[in-house]
Design a protein around this nucleic acid. Sequence first.
DNA 1: CGGGGGTTTGAGTCCGTTCAAAATACGTGG
DNA 2: CCACGTATTTTGAACGGACTCAAACCCCCG
Lengths: 244, 244
Amino acid sequence: MAKADRVTRIPPNLSCFTCQSRERSEWCALRNDDLDLLNRSKITVNYRPGQNVYGQGNPCSGIYCIEEGTIAIRRVDAQGNSILIRLAHAGQTVGYRDFFGGEGHTGSAEALSPARVCHVDGQALRQMLSHNPALGLNFLTHLAEDLDNAEESILQNSALSVRTRLVHLLLTLKDRFADATDDGTIVLSLPLARQDLAALLGTRPETIARTIHALETDSVATFSGRTVRIPDLDMLLNEIEPYI
Amino acid sequence: MAKADRVTRIPPNLSCFTCQSRERSEWCALRNDDLDLLNRSKITVNYRPGQNVYGQGNPCSGIYCIEEGTIAIRRVDAQGNSILIRLAHAGQTVGYRDFFGGEGHTGSAEALSPARVCHVDGQALRQMLSHNPALGLNFLTHLAEDLDNAEESILQNSALSVRTRLVHLLLTLKDRFADATDDGTIVLSLPLARQDLAALLGTRPETIARTIHALETDSVATFSGRTVRIPDLDMLLNEIEPYI
DNA sequence: CGGGGGTTTGAGTCCGTTCAAAATACGTGG
DNA sequence: CCACGTATTTTGAACGGACTCAAACCCCCG
């Protein structure tokens, strides 16, 4: 069925040895044999926007390195409420939490932009972990950061308004999606639909629309499609000034 | 100053070798030399209810094993909003997330009941981790669970009412704090004040009081002080039936 | 040109918050 | 053991932010 036309398998010519992201990722702990094992036990796949890298509830067969693109990790509850847990970008790894949790994927991973993702086989990963403590420690560090972020979200969601949280989010997204700026204006080209912004803040699309409208009224930011224009960064910063 | 009367240091007669909790904790990966190192590099301290095991922002000098009692992990933001991230019980370890994150303690740990806690020195821990991959993997598993729980909380906080979340919480607490029950009634003796219940759900004490009142009106549960009586478990389960 | 999903807008409602005051529980010292 | 001062909890009233439901709108794509 559809697997063949849903994704594009890449011949294994892309080597972990020369991967630009490796030195900045968990895998920097690997040398020689382990690196070779990593290289042999990975499969690289191309995804188009909207395609799923894995689905919630699926068994977890390994972890995924993002070589290019942006991936959204979503989580759906029993009533169908969906939130966007986090965004992951080139050089980052996803699915490792589920791998270590050992209960299958607790969320789904969807490509938001065209993406190239390497799947690392769980068996091989286990082997590397078993005799390379530094690799495990690297994952521990990442997991600790993720947990920190998750707790920060819990705190923000219960204490801050949607408007404040949206401004926070824009500030975060700025670091990754800001385009070159000729005048002082900052321009963001986001891979996110309104629904995604809503899911990221744990609110509804209608509320996002209203909040965006309010920000535009106050000339804090203007939205057109997935492009956000921030004429004056200071105004944005003033929004959250009491909350730093 | 007060340190001496705030806590009670225990002579090192309590051995990790004979610790009841060890086999059910991360430390089950340790053998011989490592176990001996653990035993030598720990300090055991008694805490009274309300005392802090560590404070938010403090440098992280190691991790803490709870030998007895219940510990609350709290987190405060810039405006002073405080939430209770999680409860930790005998046999569990706290502070390891902060240890691996490497930026000091992201929250505070407070004894809710009389507690005995072993502090494991970070230097020794690093040593054990460096040559015992299984220990790191055990921490990874725990961290993965914590992250799963945190994300579950995010989802629940944005989708479920306070009443539903409180019922959820009671059901969770039941597993640990249910007393023996002569008739069908379930009795919980919680170490939690109303404020703690509120902080645990990310809401206000007033809202908790009102919600409790509503539950009592509907004969789902009765609260008196820190004791909760659940006359009919099915009624409690019916509350969350649509949300399983 | 006609779907169709996503987005926006409107109106109304509800849940939870805020602020304030009263009531209760708690610990301490006399 | 009781009285007192303090902290916590409860109750009330009013407000407000976000949600729901519904309709209109828009834009993209076929």
